[in-house]
Simulated scan of single mutants.
Amino acid sequence: MSETNVAPIRSQHDDALIAEVRDAMKSESLSQSALSQLTGVGKARLSQWLNGNYKGSVSGVETAIRRWLDSRRANDELEAQMPAGPDWVETPSARAIIAALSFAQMAESVSVVYGGAGVGKTSTIGRYQQQSPNVWVVTATPACAATGPILSRIAQRVGIRASGAAHLTESAIIDRIRDTRGLLIIDEAQHLTARALDQVRQLAEGAGIGLALSGNEIVYSQLTGGNRSIGFAQLFSRIAKRVRLSRPKDGDINAVMDAWQIDDKESRQLCLGIGRRPGALRGLCQTLRLASMFAAAGGASRPSAQHIRDAWQDLGGES
């Protein structure tokens, strides 16, 4: 009896699962590298599995894949339940921030926006960037507090590669943004050292663009107080507009309530109490979003005072 060629036996793959994953990758524009990070499955194993020729433990790979798909479905369901709400609310404080940013860009000067957390600085900066050309937002962190790291981060934001040496990176950034009538915004600027802040100032001046520094109270106090103020003399003398936001104004809170269509007196009083706390404007928005979910679950079109109270407590707010 003659021997016949027999195809090698491959591990059993779930073809329907592979097809579902490929559809998810296509709909979300996910690369295999990105999918590997999301699922925890190594790139080589994932590639072989997707092509149906993985020889190892298929069940182990597919368990990880199914876990990721289950998490993805749960997130989609939660997002579907989440009320849309306003993307951004034009509060009086937001208008003051935008005016400072606009002036810095138009006049090629320096503006400083500083104050407590949760009053809308970062979200308003994002809104301004969406609506204005040539606006580059760089968020400072302790890891990029010094001159070299912040220059590298700025270079990345304006679309060029850092050249290694700080002076070469500086020159490349200036060449890229010169004559753009742009605005460089450093958010969380309190993290920058004195030398880094002065470098940012010189960068903006060399390119002939505006500069805005945003952060907490330290941003402004370190420019004016103690012996350190001597090192900031040139920067401080160029500050044309200052906006201090210590806590939300009642006008800010009212604008947020109007955007969420909170009309009844009890609910508005409750929201005012939440929003007047330091940094609580962000907390109020989160509370109203959760309260709207509670309302929708009960068939109501908008949250009641009880929904708001329950949401505030559920988020860990103090009574």
Rank of each mutant, 00 (worst) to 15 (best):
G215H: 13
A212R: 03
A207P: 00
I160L: 03
N134M: 11
D250V: 04
P133N: 13
S229H: 14
A233L: 11
V137K: 04
T193D: 14
A196M: 06
S214E: 07
E188D: 13
P149Y: 13
I160P: 00
R181T: 01
G225R: 15
V256D: 03
W136H: 03
R268H: 08
H167D: 10
T169C: 01
R242Q: 12
I173W: 04
P149A: 12
A189Q: 04
L183N: 07
Q156V: 00
I230A: 12
N227D: 09
A162Y: 04
R242E: 07
H191Y: 13
I154K: 06
K241N: 15
I239F: 12
G159C: 05
L235F: 07
R157E: 06
R178V: 01
S171T: 08
R238W: 08
R242Y: 12
A143F: 12
N227R: 14
N254E: 15
K265Y: 14
N216E: 11
A189C: 09
K249W: 15
Q199M: 10
E217V: 04
G182Y: 02
A189F: 03
G164T: 01
E266I: 10
R244I: 06
Q222T: 09
S267Q: 07
A194T: 04
A145W: 14
I173F: 08
I160R: 01
R195C: 01
L183E: 01
R228A: 14
N134W: 11
G210H: 06
A162E: 03
N134G: 05
S246T: 15
R268Q: 11
N216K: 15
L213M: 11
L151Q: 08
Q199D: 13
S163Y: 07
H191W: 04
A146N: 07
M257A: 09
A196N: 07
G206N: 10
F232A: 04
R153N: 13
A233V: 01
P133G: 09
Q261D: 14
I177Y: 00
L151G: 02
L192W: 06
M257E: 11
F236P: 10
A166N: 10
D198P: 02
S221T: 10
N227L: 13
D264A: 10
L223C: 05
S214I: 05
Q199L: 02
R157L: 01
D175Y: 10
L211P: 00
A233T: 03
L245Y: 11
S152W: 08
W136R: 09
P133M: 09
R244S: 09
V219H: 13
K265G: 13
I230D: 04
I185K: 09
S229E: 15
G210C: 03
Q269P: 00
T180A: 03
F232Y: 15
D198F: 06
G231K: 10
N216T: 09
L235T: 12
V137R: 01
R176V: 00
L168G: 08
I160E: 02
A146W: 14
T139W: 08
T224D: 12
S246N: 11
Q190F: 07
G225W: 15
A145D: 10
V219E: 03
R244L: 11
S171K: 15
A255W: 08
F232Q: 11
G206A: 03
L270S: 09
V219S: 06
A259C: 02
V158H: 02
L223N: 02
